[in-house]
Design a binder for these strands. Structure first.
Lengths: 230, 230
DNA sequence: AGGATGCTTCGGTGCAGACCGAACTGTCTT
DNA sequence: AAGACAGTTCGGTCTGCACCGAAGCATCCT
């Protein structure tokens, strides 16, 4: 265990991994930039991370794209961030991330929770002890939003989990359906990435769309930030 | 983030933290023993962990008892173990832990999942998007087992989460109710700790009790161990 | 072909931090 | 009061490893 933690425990590697929680695949050079180190050193770090099964590589010509190897890795990183954030005074950046962010491949933060809540409240989604399921009405509903649950790739089986993380201690939708919803939100330009981070900004189109579709009102910005346990 | 991970990333500190995932409070000397280092060095490590908010101390006379500071810390550690275990060949020890173990203060592993499943199947527990709730029948049922949900300390609100960990990728019951169930299982000697680890052994009394109470049959020992994603 | 670009390998430097021995504080026992 | 025991503080050693410069290997462009 300590071997894995030690890999995350280096400043430079930590920066790289944080950048990759956005779910994007980045090249070695881009990662060198975010970690503020030379390409040589970056290369060493990356090969260690790949060897440990934390990252996977995808070579495209002379570029090598690195991404998190699995949802388990993303989950681990969020877990570490949770502990790191507790007891710390939330920065502006923290608050931005708490509002809406990408967590590997799905939406998290207040936005992610609000969407999951809305789906459940309207009976579009049922959550049981082992994930959940999209209902018939949910299938129709999502189809109207532009997500074809019945179609090929997606199974109705939903995977939900509580990003028991530093901003919300509630469930949001992960897995294939969560990823599809996130993709669709990008497609419709409801959200867009802030800088190169995993924080998201809800566009004005998005605010209208979210209200009309899910009944989600703008989250007041001055809302108190909840941190840590109980 | 990397600061927290670096703290876990040391071999000696990792051993100590692993020992503490059992939920027990251990003294500095005991931790020195499990980490195989001298008391001086242990002291340094422990003060770092306490400063970082990973551990809390409880001084009793000349003894100082250390324990994990929060469920978030426990959760983080399980997340790291998940990644560490994936891709590794499961050892006998892994299999023992996968069967039944203590996760901070509640039951995890196959046993933890089986109990949560049984409660849901019999309508004693409902899980929603934000944790769950013990039903009326559940309250009666648990009272018969010796757990007073209606009583003072416990609220009906259940906190469940998927220990998306290396042994089971399904929900089990955590929080106050999960802890109460675990306590009661110890009280009735249904389970007992193995060695000084967080692994649990189901006693013969326990096997009978679990079958009679929850309808849980003995899990076949030769069952294949599931590791990793998907 | 020649040069630019992305990335890796190698060799050497320097620093952080894990570790222990020795000495000290505080608590409990007899 | 003396000794045992739990834990800490201090000083010093030594190793692991993050880092970079230089050089090498692919791939792409023109």
């Amino acid at each position: 265990m300590s071997e894995i933690a030690a890999l995350v425990g280096d400043r430079a590697r930590g920066e790289m991994l944080s950048a990759l929680v956005s779910g994007r695949a980045l090249t070695a050079k881009e990662l060198a930039y975010v970690a503020k180190i030379t390409p040589q050193t970056t290369s060493e770090h990356l090969s260690k991370l790949v060897d440990a099964g934390i990252l996977t590589v995808n070579t495209r010509g002379r570029f090598r794209y690195f991404r998190l190897a699995s949802a388990a890795v993303s989950h681990m990183l969020e877990g570490i961030m949770t502990v790191a954030a507790s007891g710390r005074v939330p920065t502006f950046r923290d608050r931005t991330l708490a509002r809406a962010r990408i967590c590997y491949d799905h939406l998290a933060g207040e936005l992610g929770v609000a969407i999951a809540d809305a789906l459940i409240r309207h009976g579009h989604l049922i959550l049981g002890s082992d994930g959940g399921e999209v209902t018939d009405s949910g299938e129709t509903f999502l189809a109207n939003v532009g997500i074809d649950v019945a179609g090929s790739r997606l199974r109705r089986r939903a995977f939900c989990r509580p990003c028991l993380d530093w901003s919300e201690r509630r469930y949001h939708l992960a897995g294939a359906i969560g990823a599809a919803i996130a993709d669709r939100c990008f497609e419709m330009k409801w959200v867009k990435r802030i800088e190169e981070s995993r924080a998201l900004q809800i566009t004005s189109v998005g605010e209208k769309g979210l209200l009309a579709t899910f009944g989600i009102k703008r989250v007041p910005a001055e809302q108190e930030h909840v941190i840590g346990e109980k």
